[in-house]
Design a protein around this nucleic acid. Sequence first.
RNA 1: GCCGAGGUGGUGGAAUGGCAGACACGUUGGACUUAAAAUCCAAUGACCGUAAGGUCGUGCGGGUUCGACCCCCGCUCUCGGCACCA
Length: 798
Amino acid sequence: MTGYDHKSIEAKWSKKWADSKIFQTDLKSTKKPFYNLMMFPYPSAEGLHIGHVFSFGGPDVYGHYLLRRGYDVFEPMGFDSFGIHSENYAIKKNTHPMKLINDTVKYFRDEQFKRLGTIIDWEHEVVTSDPKYYQWTQWLFLQLYEAGLAYRKEAPAQWCPSCLTVLANEQVISGKCERCGSEVTTKTLPQWFLKITDYAERLLKNLDWIDWSESTKTMQRNWIGKSEGAEVAFETGSGEGVTVFTTRPDTLWGATFLVLSPEHSLVSKLTSSSQKAVVNTYVSEASKKTEIERVSTDKEKTGVFSGSYAINPVNKSKIPIWIADYVLTGYGTGAIMAVPAHDVRDYAFAKKFDLPITAVISGGDISKEAYTGEGKLQNSGEFDGTDSNLAVTKVTKWLEDQGFGKAKVTFHLRDWLISRQRYWGPPIPMIYCEKCGTVPVPEKDLPVLLPNLENFKPTGTGKSPLASDPEFVNVACPKCGSPAHRETDVSDTFLDSSWYFLRYPSTGCEDKPFDQEMTKKWLPIDFYSGGNEHAVLHLMYTRFITMVLHDRGLIDFEEPFKKFRARGMIVLGGAKMSKSRGNVVNPNDYFDRTGADALKMAMLFMVPFEQGGEFNENGVGGVVRFLNRVVKLVESAKERPETEQELTLKNKTIKRVTSDIEAMTFNTAIATLMEYANGLSEAPQASKSAARTLVSLLAPFASHLAEELWQSLGEGFSVHTSPWPTLEEKYLISKDELIVVQVSGKLRDRLSVPTGSSEEEVTRLALARPKVSSYTKDSQLSKTIFVPGRLINFVLKK
RNA sequence: GCCGAGGUGGUGGAAUGGCAGACACGUUGGACUUAAAAUCCAAUGACCGUAAGGUCGUGCGGGUUCGACCCCCGCUCUCGGCACCA
């Protein structure tokens, strides 16, 4: 395919841009700061694939656009280089991650990123595995510890048998490891947790006002999973009370047995001697099951009788206590009151073990199935006849008065488990001393350097490879000086990325994680974009960390990202691109064959940015053809006044492209540019003025080519000499007879407007007009003008 | 099961309640060429018709409206998230 010489043009301009530092923002002197952030990648084996061109290209177009609107745009980039992804790749390559990471970062940055034509400011690069960075990740951990938000607990945790480490709740998807897809099992180890649950209510509440993609907010809301109900205490014969959580206190009179999870702390105490053997067997078997086996809904319920009984406080009936793994340890109190008549799970359990079922809500037929709908209470003492939906609050209040229980809010969100029994991460900066107990590493001793271990592979024993290095482990206690040992687990990669956006403006800072002045000036982030696969991972963690730093008085905002938009994903063969699936498309081929400009534009033209979709290389040729046509059009442009047709088209184009870029609908922005070029091509020669506008509007998308074309039309870098075009004249009504048919939806009205009226005039006339009910069937063309608060629809009559 | 987003030509996708299918891809025909590629021009939702023109068309069934891809009700399918969360 012949055409413009993309190779030399792109090489020429990326060099000139780099040499002149044109896209480096002077962070101190800026007047109109705009922090444009994209989720940074982890530099693993595959390199950037074509999906990255899409996900980085889109927000970068926005950055280019803002520059031309006069903003000082800061668009940094970095690498999330710690973590299991990178470590696993090193293992596969039989290299050491410390060596490997430099090569991969270099490849990503120099061979791939820098060819894209972005406005990324590489002077502020952040690499999370750099001690200069992770020193502050460790500092962050100490901050959390000081705030009482980091604690160590021996607890059963979700263990990935392939990654050989425990995982946070968020990193287990349908019982499988988020990273490798293995079914997780349970392992009990001492673990460090961060108390994100303390922030559950705030994390939920702020979702009401932050400007984020609705899809992301919904996922977070569901994940936080607030449910309101009551805690009720049941007495047992042994003197140990069992507290349960329920969202249906109105069904309390129908509770015919209690169920404890196998890990519940009272299991052994409440097991009678005759049941001991059975219970022990059941509990140990439950612990061996994988998460998948335990939670699969279609599996038959299992359980054993503990041998003891509890008293239902509301009707004093004696009910048996069972142990079953359909009750989860980590949710609520780990124990439930079973109301088989009105809960499908309890119903199935009661049927299987032949336990009594008592209906306490009218409606439904409990001989067939559980009735979970609404109705009137029955068999419920003084509450008989009350509507069940009203009874929830009434009974809760009554329980409080009687001292049986209290209102309680429970969240699905669990504390964030950050311990990883792996090598490639920042060591958790804690020391265990026999005399002083758990002692944090003093800030002055940071970073706790990750030792260069030859044998860094995961052990699978539940201990990190760091435990095998005596030089690392043995340390003097910072408090008393006596022999002590270090924590040997490293922290979760998501802790690294939970604060990286704070570091970018302050990368030079040696003595603190982020500079106060810079942070005030540049944060919170004006615009952030990335994938929804991080909705409950990275995006939840960053919000939590930001709130903590805010509460500690270190920053003055509590939400890190003013605006967030989730981009769609580019898939191939219906699947996410990954090396293991063998469906990775490398952009470098296209850089050589068609140029980065064409590739980036083609990707953005292919599918709506927030939706994503299937990669199809057929579209790339179309964009190349378009760019070639633009080159010809600009080359043949003539110095002459713009025609009326050119003017009208220009106004329409500027309007549309501007609003499309702001709405991240790049596909329609590009279509509009194509229409503009097509329209200008109708005349033998376009005017130079029109050509300039076209090039200016094209610049964010095909930056190298536009720069080259701009040179042929004028002087200097386009970013300085080609501001974003604005509508020079008001949107004029081109020809006579305009009729308004509709104002604000239902109202119907008609009026003629003189030729040459501006938007304002038409609007004023329309609003001043009393409404008339009439309708023209011969109305042919229409256009809409937006006036604050009202939509006015004009129909042009032929 | 629950929550969310969707269903429009051969394909990707456009359309504040107002000409459905913008813009592309593909296909077909034509021009240029010894030929091909590239490029340019034309056609391209389906059906009927030589044509002018007509009929039907946005997952299915209803409704609101002068007018519905768009709003409302009920279904259905696809994709994403959550899931024995009490």
